[in-house]
């Protein structure tokens, strides 16, 4: 880890990921334009701009769809985790593609000398009372404003500055942006361009996003309700050797908080499963050089007290653990961040 903020933290994996991402988007946009060109050969410059406008618009919408699918996919199958770790670059690129869509739209008005009519599209107030005829561009502007805010605050610095709960809330707004774009298309182009492709794109996208979220939620609900609690509320983790050495077992408290119970030889400790950096899944990480290491960006914490080693100052909530007749149990009540709480297990199998 370095102690200087860099513009972008690239490594080999991320560079490959970004190259594949950019190439994929470029191929989609070029392919869209090539097909549209054949299908309805453009007669003039506005027609040409219209093709690109649609190519970038649909690209941004499909990217937004993929972004929303990556989360539940990663919860369903850990092979998708790699996509999740790099979702930030995906989001920033989506913003640039959407912004290009808007730039092309402005150009479309400009080349026809119609730029001065554009503001009236937003300020014809009586149209806001209509359903069909609603100023769909305003919906696009609202979505773009959300995407801009997210892209502009995606650097780690902002996570610290805005505090994780605010940052998280801001990034949940991606669902609002998605809804706004769906309406932008449904009330806009879908009303005056009668091709089945547009409703097909919307239904396919909504279907994929909704189905994956329901599947992931269902599986977690199932997993969260199967675990027995001791009479005094402590949660069963299992025998010490059921916890992989230098790894963790994740248990869920009744409130839904996930607790990562780690084992390092015969030392057992429990931390929140949420990394202080970007809420990464700590329990899927490993103990490296004596520290619990987050799988997402490598932040490290001491198992004994949840503190990052100096000079870092992050501190995690810890949980009390106990050894009870051969099994490990954890108290679901969190201790203040940085409280020492690990134990040494009397006897370990592995």
């Amino acid at each position: 880890m370095s102690v200087a903020f860099k513009a972008v933290q690239w490594n080999r994996d991320k560079l490959i990921y970004d190259a594949v991402l950019v190439a994929g988007v470029a191929i989609y946009i070029a392919g869209f334009a090539a097909v549209a060109w054949r299908w309805h050969p453009p007669k003039n410059l506005p027609d040409v701009l219209d093709i690109w406008l649609r190519a970038f618009g649909t690209a941004a919408f499909l990217m937004l769809t993929v972004i929303l699918c990556i989360g539940p996919l990663a919860r369903l199958d850990c092979r998708f985790l790699k996509l999740l770790y790099n979702r930030r670059h995906f989001g920033v690129l989506t913003f640039f593609v959407a912004a290009t869509h808007v730039g092309l739209m402005i150009e479309w008005f400009a080349v026809q000398g119609l730029l001065h009519t554009l503001p009236a599209d937003f300020t014809t107030w009586e149209n806001y009372g209509k359903f069909i005829g609603f100023p769909f561009k305003t919906l696009g502007v609202a979505a773009l404003a959300i995407m801009l805010t997210m892209a502009a605050t995606s650097h780690d610095f902002w996570l610290g500055f805005l505090k994780p709960p605010v940052w998280k809330a801001l990034h949940m707004a991606v669902y609002a942006a998605y809804g706004l774009v769906v309406m932008h298309v449904a009330l806009g182009i879908m009303q005056y361009e009668h091709t089945p492709l547009i409703p097909l794109m919307l239904i396919g996208s909504l279907g994929a996003v909704a189905t994956l979220h329901l599947m992931a939620g269902w599986r977690e609900w199932d997993a969260d309700h199967g675990r027995a609690a001791a009479a005094d509320g402590w949660l069963l983790v299992g025998p010490p050797n059921a916890i992989p050495d230098k790894g963790a077992r994740i248990v869920t408290a009744s409130g839904g908080e996930r607790i990562a119970v780690f084992r390092d030889g015969d030392q057992i400790g429990a931390l929140t499963n949420l990394c202080a950096h970007q809420n990464g899944p700590l329990g899927e990480g490993r103990i490296i050089d004596g520290c619990v290491t987050c799988p997402w960006h490598g932040y490290q914490y001491r198992l004994a007290d949840g503190c990052a080693p100096p000079p870092f100052i992050e501190r995690l909530v810890t949980y009390r653990v106990r050894w009870n007749q051969g099994v490990i149990e954890v108290d679901p009540h969190p201790l203040p961040p940085g409280t020492p709480a690990s134990i040494t297990c009397p006897r370990t199998g592995a």
Partner: peptide, 23 residues
């Protein structure tokens, strides 16, 4: 002031600019 123990490279400052201007 808000970056405990951290320093900034010049590109990092440029990347932070849009967010600071927006908010």
């Amino acid at each position: 002031r808000f970056a405990h123990h951290m320093t900034f490279t010049l590109p990092a400052r440029l990347v932070l600019f849009p967010g600071a201007a927006l908010l």
